[in-house]
């Protein structure tokens, strides 16, 4: 048995021209979240508590696309989704279509523990939040001025998806995206939306857990569900490993990406990094995505075929890394 290990991400697919100041902010946030997770692991919190704790922190900070700072729907509202999974018994909980719940990941945890179901969505999920007494806020709380501006740009460019960090002046960058559209689900779109957040942890007892949370795509249709809340797609954990994915949701769903990492370990006997590499190379087809993973032996791995991924990881033996580019 190895020691504990933790990885966090803040989305795959980074604007290559992202200002250095913004890169620095991202790294600081990832480092802060890693440290929060590390001290929780040192206090012997179980993996499931640690992933929830870290994702709450990422949701609460407006920097990435989850909780406060979530991307906006075509109607200018926020619809958040999240899921969490505990490796040992593969218990899981998921939520979609949240508009007032401050920390979606904690509601996903409550679905897992306090409801007979695995997945609640939209008004039913909101009712459950009130019944459980979790903190709720006005939808305005989640909406940042920056995202309002980016939604306007996305609408002008008629793209469903939009990297919100592309500067306002950079409509050239945007039209470049439109000229050579990525095809998603058979239809052309522009840049995929990054910045979903996630955390995977193995604790010193070898228990794995995974959690993922997102605001979804900028200018998405209301009611759209992406990969983040789907067990086996955006999030998966079992006895062997914990996985959280990010990137082009539709490609991740079709590739059942998170489950795939575990499946090639289980059925093909691959090691964690081998499994991650295999899945990124063979399972995404044209899609663009990234993922983080830990194994019960205390290994940590990440992989992506996008331009960069906001990520950080640490292991018990003192290794720690925070990065954006390859």
């Amino acid at each position: 048995m190895g020691g504990w290990a933790i990885a966090v991400h803040g989305g795959a697919g980074v604007d290559p021209n992202l200002p250095l100041e913004r890169q620095e902010q991202a790294k600081q946030l990832l480092t802060r979240c890693l440290n929060l997770g590390i001290s929780a692991l040192r206090s012997n919190l179980p993996a499931i508590d640690v992933v929830e704790l870290v994702v709450r922190e990422l949701e609460t900070d407006p920097f990435f696309n989850s909780g406060r700072g979530s991307a906006l729907t075509e109607k200018g509202t926020v619809e958040m989704e999240a899921s969490i999974m505990d490796g040992p018994k593969r218990r899981c909980g998921a939520v979609s279509g949240l508009t007032t719940v401050k920390n979606p990941i904690s509601l996903a945890r409550l679905v897992m523990e306090k409801s007979p179901h695995s997945y609640l969505a939209f008004s039913g999920a909101e009712d459950f939040a009130r019944q459980q007494g979790v903190e709720v806020v006005d939808n305005e709380y989640f909406i940042t001025k920056e995202n309002v501006g980016m939604l306007k740009l996305a609408k002008e460019a008629k793209t469903i998806l939009f990297d919100y960090r592309i500067p306002t002046a950079g409509l050239e960058t945007c039209s470049a995206g439109v000229d050579s559209p990525i095809v998603m689900n058979g239809l052309p779109i522009s840049v995929y939306a990054p910045e979903t957040v996630g955390c995977v942890v193995v604790d010193s007892q070898g228990r794995c857990a995974a959690a993922t949370s997102t605001g979804g795509l900028m200018n998405k249709m209301t009611g759209r569900i992406g990969d983040s809340p789907l067990i086996g797609a955006g999030t998966y954990a079992c006895d062997l490993c914990g996985v959280s994915c990010t990137g082009e949701g539709e490609a991740i769903i079709r590739g059942t990406l998170a489950r795939e990492v575990a499946a090639v370990m289980e059925y093909k006997g691959l090691g964690l990094q081998e499994a991650v590499d295999f899945v990124i190379k063979q399972r995404l087809d044209e899609g663009q995505a990234g993922l983080i993973a830990v194994s019960r032996n205390g290994e940590v791995a990440c992989g992506f075929n996008t331009t960069g991924m906001f990520r950080g990881c640490a292991t018990e033996d003192g290794f720690m890394e925070v990065g954006i580019w390859e």
Binding site: S96, G97, A121, F122, S123, I160, L161, M184, N185, G186, L187, I189, K220, M221, T222, G223, R224, I225, G226, L230, G249, E250, I253, R254
Partner: peptide
């Protein structure tokens, strides 16, 4: 599957 760039629509959005 065929007419949206998404895979999954739910509740009011799906009804719309």
């Amino acid at each position: 599957m065929e007419k949206t760039p998404h895979i999954y629509l739910a509740f009011d959005g799906a009804e719309a």
